[in-house]
Nucleic acid binder design. Structure first.
Lengths: 339, 339
DNA sequence: TAAGGAAATGTTATCGATTTCATAATTATA
DNA sequence: TATAATTATGAAATCGATAACATTTCCTTA
């Protein structure tokens, strides 16, 4: 309730002085500072940040758009973002698109109304394409950075932090090939179009490179959930001849896959090898422990946020994507197939 | 850049009319509405919500304080909160205390500066006790609601939504007892003091009720992570006589526990039964599938948000805790111990 | 069709902190 | 000590949308 005005009156100074007390205390005489301190205590003043933000034209809020908070990998990235945001004095506002089922206009509004000083897009960018198409007129949106997602033509002008998805997928596939697998299925994550495309390309590249036939029926579109990993795996197992290895676009689908394989009486990895993506914390303790491609989630989050801060501060920025290293983690869900 | 003023000028109306266009369009004549629509398009206007929020004295933001976004159960609750928040036009700002390692004053600031129209506290309340102690003076904070946490004396004046943790824990323990277990270990989640205490009480109650001795060394403090479940389980297995069942305060610790038990050459459930809490989505596909107490996470989130909205709207509210039903889900990680 | 009432629109003060510009107080310099 | 150069403080404008209040326009009905 009490405002700078009340404090100023109580302290016998002007509102400008009270404002300086908070923003540039060093330019106040000690005596004045003390008076204000006392008045603040007396009046029980606490700043109205709505007013401050309005006047300053800055919200100190970073909006993070995420397909689902539930996905562990995004949780890691978020943690990295939060760490840096905290350092820099930003708060994080999360928009969970629930795998892109959220109405676009709601989101669009967030972009164009000064609500955020910056926007981080994780995973899928498709929601953005729509939202940003509004920006034809002179509407301005805050700086945007896209992470965990490969650039598509529409968004290639945003900076981005990610692994080399194509190379990572090739690595994973070649790991399987080197073990002797020839029929390798791929379950994609259709949501993140860019990533999914790259990973599929990496898979195909590896197959081609080793003169293996790519069977189109072995390539399926998943939605990154355990449930979908299970569903698609059941379908794969129903084929007269099932693949000897399954490459999944993320660990959750891989875990679902393993469950169904074991459930059908087959063994992992003896009958079918499974490999995932992300190295979530459940991968290590799964049975068998899951071979996967690790992404440095927290590092991605930190780098993303640092870069965004750079842009916000108006500093020179490199718009070419920042590629962080991935790593193949070999555990026990992959092996040479038993004939 | 362009403001209502610019739009008003372009449309040949007053700023008040432009404001009405957005807030009570039905009271404008169609003709006027059209003029404004056109002017908005022409000027590329988009509303400055910082100004609107300031003027209205409302931020339309709900702050959710959460021990860690990574915990799946909280993810479920969050989803419920988001659903309702979306309906009601609120945005969600998340403060991840990283298991209460976040500095208090930073948080406190959020509470007293009009940044949030309401606050939801999930799990541990300890951060709040400190933050709110500042409220001695006339500082006002927005409505607060506490969920997934049992009331402790300090916060008993906040409404809350949760399961009956004590009863749930008793149910879980009695399930084990009914299977013939006598040496039952309990791994608590010390973070959420209230919950943890209640669950421990429920465990002790069941033991007492069935004339079983409660061995203090079988009760340990965990921190709700997989890692801690593993660490404590390894310790339990090193005893000359290990327990035949382990009750964990959440599923993640339970999954870690199962991993270590199998890793040590023992079998689940033949040698040791394991039971968790929360029914996270990994519980169903674990090997063996995890017996657990299910909490209706999304429902908790929804009810929490609805109640908070009630309070914000100034409606009459029942301050006694809202108890939602829990459910024992029996899978295959529990069985009669083999002698 | 004039009067009364409702509906539509305009004028202007306002929210609270910051900031510019002006002025007073202090210190340094000659 | 007078004057210039700093430094500290105050007065008042400002950010952009909203809301209270005033006024005008449009209907309705006697």
């Amino acid at each position: 309730m009490s405002s700078v005005k009340a404090v100023a009156k109580e302290a016998g100074v002007s509102t400008a002085t009270v404002s300086r007390y908070f923003n540039t205390p060093e330019q106040l005489k000690e005596n004045t500072r003390n008076k204000v301190t006392l008045a603040i205590k007396k009046t029980g003043y606490s700043m109205n940040s709505l007013a401050r933000n309005f006047r300053r034209g800055k919200s100190n809020v970073i909006v993070v758009v995420i397909p689902s908070i539930g996905v562990p990998h995004f949780g890691d990235v978020l943690k990295g973002i939060e760490t840096v945001a905290g350092e820099k004095g930003f708060s994080i506002m999360i928009i969970d698109t629930q795998f892109n089922t959220m109405p676009f206009d709601k989101m669009a509004n967030t972009f164009f109304s000064n609500q955020a000083d910056g926007i981080i897009l994780l995973g899928s960018v498709s929601p953005f394409k729509n939202a940003l198409s509004r920006s034809n007129s002179s509407e301005k949106h805050p700086p945007i950075i896209v992470s965990c997602e490969n650039a598509t033509p529409d968004i290639s002008n945003f900076p981005s932090v990610r692994i080399d998805n194509k190379a990572a997928s090739t690595t994973a596939t070649e790991h399987l090939i080197s073990l002797g697998h020839q029929e390798i299925a791929y379950i994609s994550g259709s949501l993140s179009s860019g990533v999914s495309g790259e990973r599929e390309a990496g898979y195909r590249l590896a197959m081609d490179k080793h003169d293996l036939e790519t069977v189109e029926e072995l390539i399926s579109d998943g939605n990154l959930t355990i449930e979908d990993g299970r569903r698609i795996t059941r379908r794969l197992l129903n084929r007269k001849k099932y693949p000897t290895a399954i490459l999944c676009a993320n660990d959750e689908m891989a875990l679902g896959s393993i469950y169904e394989i074991k459930n059908s009486g087959l063994r992992v990895p003896e009958d079918i090898s499974v490999i995932g993506f992300d190295n979530i914390r459940y991968a290590e303790i799964s049975d068998p422990p899951l071979t996967t491609i690790a992404q440095p989630g927290e590092e991605i989050g930190e780098k993303t946020m640092y870069q965004l801060c750079h842009i916000i501060e108006g500093l020179e920025v490199d718009y070419s994507p920042t590629i962080v290293p991935h790593q193949l983690i070999i555990r026990s869900s992959t092996a040479t197939p038993e004939k």
